[in-house]
Computed example of a mutant assay.
Amino acid sequence: MKLIDTVEMMNSENYKERFRAEYFQLDIRINGLSNMLEKYKEGTLAFTPSCSYEVLYTQLVHMESYKKSLEERAKIENIVL
């Protein structure tokens, strides 16, 4: 799934669909940042980041925590992810 695939859900009248879009977007971004950090460590990035590895890793940790919160809320609200 790509971010563009979530546009319709994001514009839905149904809050559960918007929630799912938020979750999927976050997951896509987590995967992208995780892959980038892997390449950063290996020294194989095609560019030089402005931020340090540590700053980007901290961002990833917070994103993963946010994802866990969304998963917990989804269980409580019976939202199928």
Rank of each mutant, 00 (worst) to 15 (best):
M1V: 13
M1G: 15
K2I: 14
K2F: 11
L3A: 12
T6F: 08
T6C: 13
T6Q: 13
E8D: 15
M9N: 10
M9E: 13
M9H: 11
M10P: 01
M10F: 11
M10W: 09
N11R: 14
N11C: 15
N11V: 06
S12N: 12
S12L: 07
E13I: 07
Y15A: 03
Y15M: 11
K16Y: 03
E17C: 01
R18T: 10
R18Y: 06
R18C: 12
F19E: 10
F19D: 02
F19T: 09
F19L: 03
R20K: 15
R20M: 04
R20S: 01
R20P: 01
R20H: 01
E22T: 13
E22N: 15
Y23T: 08
Y23V: 11
Y23Q: 00
Y23P: 02
Y23E: 03
F24W: 04
Q25F: 00
L26G: 15
L26S: 03
D27G: 02
D27L: 08
D27R: 05
D27I: 00
I28R: 00
R29P: 02
I30S: 00
I30T: 04
I30C: 02
N31M: 08
N31V: 04
L33I: 09
S34T: 06
N35S: 09
M36K: 09
M36Y: 00
M36F: 01
M36R: 09
L37Q: 04
E38H: 07
Y40G: 00
K41N: 11
K41G: 03
E42W: 00
E42V: 01
G43Y: 09
G43F: 07
T44R: 05
L45T: 07
A46V: 04
F47T: 01
F47S: 02
T48F: 06
T48S: 13
T48P: 02
S50N: 12
S50H: 08
S50G: 03
S52N: 02
Y53E: 02
Y53G: 04
E54Y: 05
E54G: 01
V55D: 14
V55F: 09
V55M: 11
L56P: 05
L56R: 09
L56A: 11
L56Q: 10
Y57S: 09
Y57R: 08
Y57F: 14
T58W: 03
T58N: 15
T58R: 12
V61H: 01
V61L: 13
V61Y: 02
H62T: 07
H62C: 08
M63L: 15
E64S: 01
E64D: 05
Y66G: 00
K67Y: 13
K68D: 14
K68E: 15
S69V: 08
E71Q: 13
E71K: 12
E71F: 06
E72P: 00
R73T: 12
R73I: 10
R73P: 01
R73G: 00
R73N: 08
A74N: 07
K75L: 12
K75Q: 12
I76K: 14
I76D: 07
I76L: 12
E77P: 07
E77I: 03
E77R: 08
N78Q: 12
N78I: 02
V80D: 13
V80M: 08
V80A: 11
L81V: 06
